[in-house]
Simulated scan of single mutants.
Amino acid sequence: MEILQSRQRLQEEQKRKEELRLAKEQEEQLKLQELKNQKYTERQNKEQKKQDFKAKVYTDAQNIKQLQLENLEIIEQKRLEEIQSKIAAKQEIQRQKSRAEERRKRMELEKKAQMKMELERKIEEENRIRREKEEMVARMEQEELELIQRLQNTQLLQQSVFEDLEAAMGVTELRDS
Rank of each mutant, 00 (worst) to 15 (best):
M1K: 06
Q11R: 11
E13L: 10
E13G: 01
Q14M: 14
K15C: 03
K17C: 09
K17N: 13
L20N: 11
R21T: 15
R21N: 13
R21H: 12
L22A: 12
A23Y: 03
K24E: 11
K24L: 13
E25W: 10
E25T: 02
L32P: 01
L32Y: 06
L32T: 01
L35W: 14
K36D: 13
K36E: 15
N37F: 03
Q38V: 00
E47W: 04
F53P: 02
A55K: 10
V57D: 07
Y58L: 15
T59E: 15
D60M: 11
D60S: 08
Q62C: 08
L67A: 15
Q68P: 03
L69I: 05
E70Y: 03
L72R: 06
E73L: 15
Q77M: 02
K78R: 12
E81F: 00
E82A: 00
E92N: 06
I93K: 09
I93Q: 09
Q94W: 06
A100D: 08
M107G: 12
E108A: 02
L109N: 11
L109E: 15
K112S: 01
K116V: 04
K116S: 07
K116T: 04
K116Q: 10
I123D: 12
E124Y: 14
I129Y: 13
R131T: 06
R131I: 13
E135H: 02
E135N: 08
M136R: 14
M136N: 08
Q142P: 02
I148V: 12
R150P: 01
L151F: 09
Q152C: 06
Q152P: 01
Q158N: 07
Q159C: 01
D164E: 15
M169T: 00
M169E: 02
T172L: 05
L174Q: 04
